[in-house]
Amino acid sequence: MASAPSDSAPSNRGPVPVAAFTAHKILVAGGFGSGKTTLVGAISEVRPLRTEETLTTASVGLDDLSGVDGKTTTTVALDFGRITLTPRIVLYLFGMPGQERFSFMWDELAYGALGAVILADVRRLGDCFASVNYFEKQRLPFIIAINCFDDAPSYDPEEVRQALDIDQGVPVVLCDARDLASVKQVLISLVEAISVSRSRAMTPGR
């Protein structure tokens, strides 16, 4: 097959290979303890991804790395999952830490993502605000999934919508992050919402 020309590919290294599969990214956001790891784990193997706040090169000397203390770095372990939908389509789910202090990595995680599931714990709804604001600002499609714990009172999705001040067009669904069928439906709802938002964007005047 002919190689794909690309002005950003290494120019003197020979033909660029044809992609054997395409990788797509969906984010799973929500507060601490909202069930992100559980949700990812319900539908795929959960793999840990170690990442850290970038050290400035000034603080990392070639001679004495022991001089860098823990205060200048933040180590974060992210969870991600991989779902092979077809031999050519692989979906990656990345757990996005919701706390503001990890916001430095949100742009990197969100880059090129299809959309996001924001897991809401009704006992701590305020934990969602940062994620909601972020995705709205980035114009990244998202849905709210209310994680139903055994001991949490059941909530009307519309009450949660109002509490989070979410647009009418954004799906707010119930979810059991432990249950494969429920998590499947959450992802389906997100991808459907992405399709709908695109067709709306393409029909002005609606």
Partner: peptide, 27 residues
């Protein structure tokens, strides 16, 4: 070498979105 999938500023096509949807439903 990096395998180019699609230009970074291009969104996933609607046909691929549909394949993703079909794939999720079939899980």
């Amino acid at each position: 070498t990096v395998v180019r999938q699609r230009p970074a500023n291009q969104r996933t096509g609607n046909d691929v979105l549909q394949e993703i949807l079909n794939g999720l439903r079939a899980l």
